[in-house]
Design a binder for these strands. Structure first.
Lengths: 253, 253
DNA sequence: CAGTGGTCTAGACCACCAA
DNA sequence: TGGTGGTCTAGACCACTGT
């Protein structure tokens, strides 16, 4: 009475469920289609709703599902390839549907943590431009660009926030950047970040930290958080082929 | 009747809990220390164990916690920076405690998906080297390196698996690679992958797909899966400064 | 063995959305 | 209003670890 017989049960139920659901989705559903609701699915598979939800959590983490409150559970579109390094600072990239939108611009004394990443003394003035990256109409990332005020001596003193943001970006563009070094790690969106990304708090994100160097010194640091569910970060490089066949990496192994 | 009063309750309980726990850990715990057990914590905060676990799940996803069955919940060490691009193919990199260990080497006809990523016809022969990346004694990644047999005409015909693996890697090393293009996305470890990484199935991983180009054609494709909990991928680049201050990116914002 | 985290259940209520 | 996913509870049992 109770559990159906599976593969010797060495595997957790929710993991087995995930596999079955994945197979079913690939075979019988297409992008955007809504699955049966959770209560029905859990009944159909003879498990508690919590267990079913655990399986759906996995699939959502993999970017295969999107769950919308009040609507249902939908099969997600394949991840969008988002180029991360074609000199993002400026006006370029407006082509290909990638766009930046400034949200915020402040100038303040560097916190302890920030001063350390920038390699400057604590308390030095730093410009911070906060902006969104919008690709094909969807907000895919937020970015905080930190530039020590000392690095931009020619910046006109303007009070208007949006003007200052423009000024910082333009000045930074004029500097010759002779190197960038990046890191990527997994994180979760805090409440503020999450709101900008139109997601609930705790949403998994890919945190990209970029250090821009000028003449052997750090000129700026950018911290970008990309929605992990919808984004595949791409790093085009030295004379690369850019075949860019959109095959999910998981299908290759 | 029930829930304690918090910040207007607009926030889910588990998220608030996460924040409180994070503050507590930063203030009163240090790396490797074990937290009170789940039953006690849930009692102390007046929530169900499932709710507490939801908070711990978040912290684990952020790499701040490690949970060991039978032992307890420990404060995790900061993530290890793992260089991803210093020509990994060969013997280099043995310095700095990074090491590769071949697990597997097969030569077989390309599946549909694989042939597409490699840009070759389905059914062509492909060498696949499967290996582990071990950094400071810990297995941090698995990699599947796929090389079309046609790209390595001088490969001696050997039956021994480990010899063939060596041969493929050496031959690939001799090719002049004129470009690499990468992508990074979030995934979860399937059962086999998970076992190699010494983690349970479903573990979040960073999937790095690298395309190596020779003379404008794809010479090889590598699919690496890095443990997302312990790894911060680093991409050192053109004359970069490499200040590499190990500050968690989340502390900067 | 006792103690830990991992899994699973059955049920309740809430927040959101569409009609 | 009825249906959806999101949160939370109280309790049970299992799998693993150390002594």
């Amino acid at each position: 009475m109770g559990q159906g017989t599976l593969t010797a049960v060495a595997e957790p139920k929710y993991w087995h469920l995930r596999t079955v659901l994945l197979r079913t989705m690939d075979a019988e559903f297409s992008t955007g289609q809504v699955l049966p609701n959770e209560r029905e699915l859990s009944a159909r598979f003879g498990v508690a709703r919590a267990t079913l939800r655990q399986a759906l959590d996995q699939l959502e983490l993999e970017g295969r599902l999107v769950r919308r409150r009040g609507i249902g559970t939908l099969v997600a579109a394949p991840r969008v390839g988002v180029p991360v390094n074609d000199r993002e600072s400026g006006r370029a990239g407006a082509a290909r549907g990638s766009e930046w939108k400034v949200v915020d611009c402040t100038t303040a004394a560097a916190s302890a943590a920030l001063s350390r990443t920038l390699g400057i003394a604590e308390g030095e003035q730093v410009h911070t431009v906060r902006r969104l990256r919008i690709t094909q109409g969807v907000t895919v990332a937020t970015e905080s660009l930190h530039v020590p005020a000392a690095a931009l001596p020619h910046l006109a003193v303007v009070v208007d926030e949006s003007d200052r943001a423009r000024g910082v970006l333009r000045q930074l563009d004029r500097l010759s950047i002779d190197g960038e070094s990046r890191s990527v790690e997994l994180g979760v969106a805090e409440t503020g970040e999450a709101a900008l990304l139109e997601r609930p708090p705790g949403t998994p994100v890919l945190v990209v930290t970029t250090q821009y160097a000028t003449a052997g010194r750090l000129a700026a640091v950018a911290v970008s958080t990309y929605r992990a569910d919808t984004c595949k970060l791409t790093f085009g490089e030295s004379g690369a082929v850019q075949v860019a066949t959109a095959v999910p990496a998981t299908a290759v192994s």
